[in-house]
Design a protein around this nucleic acid. Structure first.
Lengths: 183, 183
DNA sequence: TACATTTGTTACCGATCGGTCACATTGATG
DNA sequence: CATCAATGTGACCGATCGGTAACAAATGTA
């Protein structure tokens, strides 16, 4: 694994565990079994490294739509239910929530270059979910998509603020109830 | 206004605007029209100051329940609707979201003393809302309360990640739909 | 007026931050 | 073997971080 890959994947982990502002470039380079100089030769600044980690997180999150289509081809209704289950699984497996949303909160008020990417990513996820709701025949697809988005986003932040025993445990039930009421 | 009050209110604003880790004690004391020495005489550390600002934020958030009871005494159903409207108003007026939840995200992984208070505050809000849903005669009050909590938490974080034009604009509609389906 | 408490001022501390320098070392390719 | 690009090393930079010491000024109160 080349140093560049090690740096960005290590940085992703550390940002997730300690926060972007909670970890320094020295510690990142150290944990990536390399040094600060090599880090700065690949990424001109810490901000660039942050953007790269978020870009990868966004890409990985985008894979869910391909997986859903592959699992239930041409069956948007089943894909919508699978979306809920898949997101509920992620909630348990990734207690740190959404890296993009967390970054938006952590980097507020400094015009960080990541903000544009975060906004674009969130808008894309929103649109994709709305398209899926529409294809699934929901009465008000955009309202249902936004409802599900709010539930997901709320579950991710609630897990960080209240722990696994918090209200995020009702995420899947709340989603299914919302989907049912919009059928 | 005594220096202590100025410090804590100024710190609240600055933490909200730039993030807890994004502002230093020097800048806080400066903006509060005092100095660092006075700040440290009232608060032994920055962490203590952070805890105090969050304690006040939690107190202020607790006032909503008294307001709701005062506005619609003995009418929990009306209080529930008013809760939605009041929270929707806050969404527009406070684009920085929930200080407590933001702090939980920003201070992750360092065992910060604020974490306990955050968890307690969130659990209390959740329980109060559940009690209101129960009094309003909802079929599954805890599930409805958690649904509304997820919607609110999601709307607050979405506003920071996607802006006012994001899916937080559907918060009130989503809440009313949820309440109706649990009637 | 005399006293005690609270503030303000200034300089300072060690640590860490993001970022850069010159130079040594490695590794692959011709 | 020679070359050249990529990596490693360690010292270093100015700035800022949270936090403190010593002393002066203000404030209220008896």
């Amino acid at each position: 694994m080349p140093p560049r890959e090690r740096i960005v994947s290590t940085a992703s982990e550390l940002f997730r565990e300690r926060g972007i502002r909670g970890i320094g470039v020295d510690a990142i380079a150290d944990a990536a079994l390399t040094n600060k100089m090599t880090l700065y030769r690949h990424f001109g600044s810490k901000d660039e490294l942050v953007c790269e980690t978020l870009r990868r997180a966004s890409e990985k999150a985008g894979a869910i739509w391909r997986d859903l289509e592959a699992a239930y081809p041409g069956n948007p209704r089943a894909q919508l239910d699978a979306w809920v289950e898949l997101r509920a699984q992620c909630l348990n497996g990734e207690p740190a929530g959404c890296d993009l949303a967390n970054a938006a909160i952590e980097l507020k008020g400094e015009g960080h270059p990541a903000h544009e990417m975060i906004e674009r990513h969130k808008a894309e996820q929103r649109d994709r979910l709305a398209a899926l709701c529409s294809a699934a025949g929901a009465r008000e697809p955009r309202l249902l998509a936004d409802t599900l988005t709010l539930l997901l986003e709320g579950a991710r932040v609630s897990r960080q603020a209240m722990g696994a025993a918090g209200c995020c445990g009702h995420f899947a039930k709340a989603c299914h109830a919302a989907i049912a009421s919009f059928a």
